[in-house]
Structures are given as structure tokens and as C-alpha cells.
Computed example of a mutant assay.
Amino acid sequence: MTAQFNDTIIASTDAAQMAEFYIDLLEAAEQPSWGPFHNISIGGGVLLQFAAPPMQFPAQHYAYLLDDAHFDRAYALIRARGIEHWADPQRQLSGQLNHEHGGRGVYLLDPSGHYLELITRPYL
């Protein structure tokens, strides 16, 4: 069997808020929560678990591949909520999209300060 990605814990300043943010943006499914974890699932059965760690944490980068229609809905949500976003990871091209790799992409920060990238075409 080829290895498949199953789950990850995303450090969160407010786990419940993070779960709701990702449910809205990624159109994810809420899953049962336990212990310190607020859980959601995305495509391929991947479980995202949000929890507040007992220490400071560095910002991470998470990229999500969306189809064009989902990207349109996510970008409309970003704009409607006034979420700051950029066309580039250096955050120089504010309020813009990129058109790299034959698709579209956008960068933003989630409520805990992690860098999110939404793309419509994979890099490979």
C-alpha cells in the first residue's frame, strides 16, 4: 500500500474558532471532537485537528488544492469578510490573485496566524 496522508494537528490560539474558519473556507465536514481537539475532515478523508498547544508555536504553511468553483466561493468569502490576502507568499501583492501553474492562487492568514495557500492547479 502506498502511504497516504491521514491527519495533522494544527496549533491554534482558539481551536473552536479555527475549526469554524476552516469549515467555512474549505467547505469541510465537522467531525466528532475529543480531548483538546476540534476535528474536521477534508477530501480524501484527511482529518485536521485543531488544538491549543502548551507553548508558543511558529507559523506554518498549509496549501489546499481547490477546484475552480470552490476557489470562486472561497475567494468570495475572503473578500466578503474583508480578510487580508496576497498573490504572493512574500505578502507584497495585496488584494490580488496569482495565475501561476495554469491556475489561480491566493495567500492569507488563518485566525492563529498560519499561512494558507489556496490553489486551483497542483505544482506537480
Rank of each mutant, 00 (worst) to 15 (best):
I23P: 00
R104L: 05
A19E: 05
G82V: 01
S112Y: 10
G82A: 04
D110G: 15
I23D: 00
A59M: 08
L97R: 04
A3D: 00
L116P: 06
D14L: 14
G103W: 11
G45D: 01
L26Q: 09
D72P: 00
L118N: 02
F37S: 09
P54M: 11
Y75R: 13
L109D: 12
M18N: 15
A16W: 12
L26A: 06
E30L: 11
N98R: 03
Q56D: 09
H70D: 08
Q90R: 15
Y107I: 06
N39Q: 07
A63H: 01
F37Q: 11
A51H: 04
I83A: 07
T8S: 09
V46C: 00
P32D: 10
I119N: 03
L65T: 08
A69S: 10
G103R: 11
A29F: 00
Y107P: 01
D110C: 14
M55R: 15
Q90P: 00
I40N: 03
G113V: 13
L108P: 02
A87T: 01
H114V: 08
D24L: 13
L47R: 14
N39W: 03
I9L: 08
A63V: 10
Q49T: 06
T8L: 13
S33T: 07
F50H: 08
Q60A: 12
H85P: 01
I9D: 02
A59K: 07
S12F: 06
N98C: 01
D72F: 01
F5Q: 10
F21N: 03
L124Y: 08
I119Y: 00
Q31W: 05
L47E: 11
I119H: 02
Y115T: 15
G105H: 10
H61A: 12
G35S: 06
